[in-house]
Nucleic acid binder design. Sequence first.
DNA 1: AATGAATGAGTCTTCATTCAT
DNA 2: GATGAATGAAGACTCATTCAT
Lengths: 220, 220, 220, 220
Amino acid sequence: MSTPAETSARRRRKEARPQELLDAALALFVEKGFAATRAEEVAAHAGVSKGTLYLYFPSKEDLLKAVIAHCLSSRIADGAARAAGFSGSTTDLMRDILAQWWVAIYDSQASAVFKLVMTEVRNFPDIADYYMREVVQPATELLGSIVKRGIDNGEFRHVDIDSAVHSLVLPLIMICIHKHSLGACPPACLGGTLPVDGHAFIRNHLDLLLDGLRASPAAR
Amino acid sequence: MSTPAETSARRRRKEARPQELLDAALALFVEKGFAATRAEEVAAHAGVSKGTLYLYFPSKEDLLKAVIAHCLSSRIADGAARAAGFSGSTTDLMRDILAQWWVAIYDSQASAVFKLVMTEVRNFPDIADYYMREVVQPATELLGSIVKRGIDNGEFRHVDIDSAVHSLVLPLIMICIHKHSLGACPPACLGGTLPVDGHAFIRNHLDLLLDGLRASPAAR
Amino acid sequence: MSTPAETSARRRRKEARPQELLDAALALFVEKGFAATRAEEVAAHAGVSKGTLYLYFPSKEDLLKAVIAHCLSSRIADGAARAAGFSGSTTDLMRDILAQWWVAIYDSQASAVFKLVMTEVRNFPDIADYYMREVVQPATELLGSIVKRGIDNGEFRHVDIDSAVHSLVLPLIMICIHKHSLGACPPACLGGTLPVDGHAFIRNHLDLLLDGLRASPAAR
Amino acid sequence: MSTPAETSARRRRKEARPQELLDAALALFVEKGFAATRAEEVAAHAGVSKGTLYLYFPSKEDLLKAVIAHCLSSRIADGAARAAGFSGSTTDLMRDILAQWWVAIYDSQASAVFKLVMTEVRNFPDIADYYMREVVQPATELLGSIVKRGIDNGEFRHVDIDSAVHSLVLPLIMICIHKHSLGACPPACLGGTLPVDGHAFIRNHLDLLLDGLRASPAAR
DNA sequence: AATGAATGAGTCTTCATTCAT
DNA sequence: GATGAATGAAGACTCATTCAT
């Protein structure tokens, strides 16, 4: 009963739509905030009309949740897999995992979700649950286990594991958030200050932190 | 209609109003976001009527700017003064300055402004300018100068100054933001995860970082 | 693309379409009201797609008019014919005509049109014209002429003809309307009240009314 | 804290508003149907702006329910009271009760509710419950008890009580509904037909029906 | 012929802001 | 000064209708 000729451009359009809308929504929600973004703007950004948006997402709020869920389909499992099969020093492992994560995140749209989550969790509590389960917990466990490996095999000092994980990770998250808030303001507003180069920073940051973690004062 | 006796309590009330409104506004803007907060809610939170809010602030947007400006009346000058007269080791100075800053910020409402600024800068660019000038630049300069002092006097390694400052400060800012986003969600949403104790963290964080900065491999 | 064999089933399908759509439309318009019924619902109810509906009816409003026109293709002519050739008592004639009319209407979909007309005339005045011409006038004339015959031949008292017709007919119409409003609500809503049995009622009603009309107090 | 001077015109306005809005809503809902009436029209009809309507009723649906509830604050108790203290013949009692009810209803706005209820019950089932409890049941009981009194004291024949009540009442309800549907169409649409005079009708109707009920074939 | 994706005019509803009291 | 009733612009969402396939 369904025309087989419908296979062409029309269908391809239809299948691409949700993604195009999610992309537009992410960009705008991160730029202006969820409440301050008009549904019609999202639609226009994706090149469709208001009505079409509602063909794919039942409400603006559902669109928000879809945006977040879509971006968070965990990249962390990859890291865990890498870690499991890693045979070098723990310092190298940590550097590898974080650098890897960074290149996957920082330059992509994914860096935006952190701001979005920070901004909107309190209005939409199911986001909190989802984010904790899909991101915070796996990430904390993965990095914590690496720190622990370092301590156990004598590479790292006996530091508090959770604090060390935070010292390692929070600046990276913060830089992602920054990129989409102050960092995205027109330079004119910023009084000609440092644009914060994420790639340069992460190298220095890891050097500093892994040095702080190192156990033996000898080899330097 | 105006009593001459309106001197005491009533006047005190009147003079306290702007502050009460600012407090209410900060709390609500941080909780729900600027766009999602109704002017009437702010008024109700401060115990006055909608109309009264507009007696003190010409518009909701002006209220936002006043909230931010008020919270940012720089505490950083204090730090600079302390630093200028400090005679101990640079490690101690850094620890002193950051710990001091932390106690002034973390437990107070001031911790909320960071989230508010992150969230709203892109909609209100004059906030960016103000924040850069009043907060980012002075803080960066102060901390940068301390790191430089450490490098110059041989206490610290030859690290990149800006990166070191970021590694030191960004986790602290991030924890402030977290406190008002995920950290403020009802525990039920969080799946029983770590509530992040800011005071414990800062100690561990400074230990780790200052250790990473230390120049001589000897004394430990 | 068109098979020569599309003769039988498919064609029958195609020819039945308008009727299926009219049936679906009647049911839904009566249930929810014209304005509150979505064109797509009507189509779905008839087992076709939105677009197909518009192949047969140029607009939702035209569909409404078609529904009403279709249901009103006067059954009253039948009654007039019966009446013309009737040779028994006027009481029996009246009972015959109304009972006949009742069995044709009450259990069929036709009972629904009355509600539909009542509900929508004021929004679509051409319906009024049509309904008056096709239903009200013929029916009034037919029944009025029967009452007159009864009066003229001494069977009935000298009552006001129009009033008598109304006393006879309005309860029947009202019961049809009721069947599609309160009478169609889930029993839970109705607090366990009488479901109003139309067939029992019409018998009692005619007994009562024809008794009231009867002229001679004698024969009972 | 509330200005006592607010007692004047302003307050009187505020207290009258709900009633003005209910009146406007009744008129429009009955004329065009609930779904086809725009909230703004109701407001305009009551001489206020869209926003003001929502100051008094939380939604259009609540407005509908308020309209119906307000019109149905039962006038039937009055009838029951009259009936209780009545000492004349049952025929006179019935005539008295129905005529009384008729003058209270037919010329007033109250006649409109019947159409509104008929039209909207199926979309808003709580209306059904309310209407059955507040109107149908009390009225049926009152009139049923009068018919029973007539049968018991030998004035009326042994008719089916419920059917008799329906024969008596349904034409009256139907005329109310008619008044607000076909009866309200511009005469041009009606092809110059009888405008149905309610007051003339009820007299004839009661004569006819009470005659049909009368027991003794003697006195006439 | 039939479909259903796309459109955008039209509605309900909210909320910043004003102003008479 | 303080209030809160009133406003109306703005935004979420629906649905009749069109048209490419």
